[in-house]
Simulated scan of single mutants.
Amino acid sequence: MRITVPTILTLLRIVMIPVLVVVFYLPYKWTPFASAAVFAFASITDWLDGWIARRYNQYSAFGAFLDPVADKLMVAVALLLIVQVHPTRWMALWAAVIIGREIAVSALREWMAELGEQARVKVASIGKFKTIVQMVALTCLLYQDRWLGLPIFSIGEWMLAAAALLTLWSGWAYLRAAWPVLARDARTDIG
Rank of each mutant, 00 (worst) to 15 (best):
L48W: 13
I52H: 00
A53K: 05
A53M: 12
R54E: 02
Q58N: 13
Q58H: 08
F62N: 04
G63L: 05
F65T: 11
P68I: 09
V69T: 07
A70S: 06
K72P: 00
V75A: 02
L81S: 06
L81I: 12
L81A: 08
I82S: 04
I82Y: 02
V83I: 13
Q84C: 03
P87S: 03
T88S: 13
T88L: 14
T88G: 14
M91A: 06
M91H: 06
L93Q: 10
W94M: 13
I99S: 02
R101S: 02
A104H: 14
S106F: 13
A107V: 15
A107T: 15
A107F: 15
R109L: 12
R109A: 12
E110D: 13
W111Q: 07
A113F: 05
A113Q: 00
E114I: 09
L115C: 15
G116E: 06
G116C: 06
G116Q: 12
A124N: 06
S125Q: 05
K130M: 07
K130Y: 02
K130G: 03
K130N: 05
I132K: 07
I132R: 03
M135Y: 02
L142H: 03
Y143P: 07
Y143G: 12
D145I: 07
D145H: 12
W147A: 10
G149Y: 00
P151C: 08
I152F: 03
F153H: 09
G156I: 11
G156D: 11
E157L: 01
W158G: 15
A162G: 08
L168C: 09
L168I: 09
W169T: 02
S170E: 02
S170R: 00
G171W: 03
W172F: 15
A173L: 10
L175D: 09
P180F: 01
L182I: 15
L182P: 02
A183C: 11
R184N: 09
R184V: 07
R187I: 08
D189W: 09
